[in-house]
Amino acid sequence: MTAFTATVTVRLKRGVLDPEAETTQRSLERLGFELDDLRSADVFELDLEAGDADGAADRAEEMAERLLANPTIHDYTVEVARAE
């Protein structure tokens, strides 16, 4: 078994309204910044042991499917790296 860190990034699907992101963007603009769009996302870092990187990714993906993301409104990505 090897130690991996799986990074799960959960985002609202394109087209789903994100009022918090809109509010954050407006605040940045009020501070004088110029930007065209702002998207927010939740990032989860999971430390786990697995036989190989694929095994770690599969498990992280299942966690995303079953809890971390809500498939009705979210897309997610999983990236796996050997733990330092």
Binding site: V16, L17, D18, P19, E20, E22, T23, N70, T72, I73
Partner: peptide, 11 residues
């Protein structure tokens, strides 16, 4: 039940 309840448009 289907769908999701998420952040109000007004935030």
């Amino acid at each position: 039940t289907p769908g999701a309840f998420t952040t109000n448009e007004s935030a």
